Simulated scan of single mutants.
Amino acid sequence: MKYLIYIGLASILLISCEDNLQFEKMPCTYLDYYYYRDEPYYLGEMSDEYILIACDQSNNDSSIRDFIKSIDFFDHSFNYEINEITNYPYKYLIAKLIKKCTCEEIAWILDSLKQAPIVVYTHYTTKTNDCSNLIWEPIGKLCVNTYSNIFYVRVKDAGNISDLNNIISETNTTLIEQDRFMSNWFSLSAIKNSKGDALHMANYFYETGLFDACEPDIIKIAIE
């Protein structure tokens, strides 16, 4: 009987906690496509439970976990992994929200998180039934798709990148490097004060009509 009472009390406290949280709203900025071979390519349905957070490599894992614990709208029982990639300057993780949220609520959450100095970028995630890597090996039971802060642009003429430099300046994005083997391709990044995140910027660059192709850096992350 005591066990049942404790469970009931915990449930009431959890519901009360969720009810007391103030989830504000901002205009939904979720994009469900990018341009592939000159056609919109559908990315999928927005996840209403998970978001991506990236922090600079200079932050140790304990500092990142302390930050996540300090945010009331995260599910602190969710077991997440802090991911690192060689030669990539950021650590990233998938955080689970304490409740299913609307796109407008998630837009506000993402914007709020960007104000924290420890956060480099935050993105929506997308639902997926595919939880395998590029060579079809399973990486988990459940995954979400998302994208990094990097996007790729293929210029019409590698010998003249004035249009690329102009749009970079306009959007406050950053040129990372030119591909050594495919000289028409350039890697760029979108940062906090860019005109938009990497997916928005990939689409924006393409829609100028100045470039042959623009694509985001899509990544898949296991959450179970």
Results as ranks from 00 to 15, higher is better:
residue 82 I to F: 03
residue 179 D to V: 01
residue 4 L to V: 09
residue 163 D to A: 07
residue 218 I to F: 01
residue 22 Q to L: 15
residue 210 L to D: 06
residue 218 I to P: 03
residue 15 I to K: 14
residue 141 K to N: 04
residue 144 V to C: 02
residue 51 I to S: 03
residue 120 V to E: 12
residue 56 D to S: 14
residue 11 S to M: 12
residue 95 A to R: 14
residue 203 N to P: 12
residue 71 I to P: 05
residue 139 I to G: 01
residue 128 T to M: 07
residue 90 Y to G: 00
residue 9 L to T: 12
residue 5 I to Q: 12
residue 115 Q to I: 11
residue 19 D to E: 09
residue 163 D to H: 07
residue 89 P to W: 10
residue 50 Y to G: 13
residue 88 Y to Q: 08
residue 173 T to L: 09
residue 159 G to L: 06
residue 17 C to Q: 14
residue 126 T to Y: 15
residue 83 N to T: 10
residue 180 R to K: 11
residue 108 W to E: 13
residue 75 D to T: 12
residue 219 I to E: 03
residue 205 F to H: 06
residue 41 Y to N: 06
residue 148 S to Y: 03
residue 60 N to W: 01
residue 54 A to K: 09
residue 136 W to C: 05
residue 86 T to P: 01
residue 211 F to C: 03
residue 16 S to W: 04
residue 200 H to K: 15
residue 35 Y to D: 02
residue 38 D to M: 10
residue 123 H to A: 03
residue 29 T to Y: 02
residue 91 K to N: 02
residue 62 S to C: 12
residue 158 A to Y: 05
residue 206 Y to T: 04
residue 137 E to V: 12
residue 12 I to R: 05
residue 167 I to P: 02
residue 52 L to F: 10
residue 67 F to E: 03
residue 35 Y to R: 06
residue 211 F to G: 04
residue 146 T to R: 02
residue 6 Y to V: 14
residue 191 I to L: 11
residue 141 K to A: 00
residue 91 K to F: 01
residue 204 Y to L: 13
residue 48 D to A: 05
residue 68 I to M: 08
residue 29 T to V: 14
residue 3 Y to K: 14
residue 163 D to F: 06
residue 90 Y to K: 08
residue 222 A to T: 02
residue 125 T to Q: 02
residue 130 D to H: 04
residue 165 N to K: 13
residue 124 Y to R: 07
residue 100 K to A: 13
residue 44 G to Q: 00
residue 130 D to W: 02
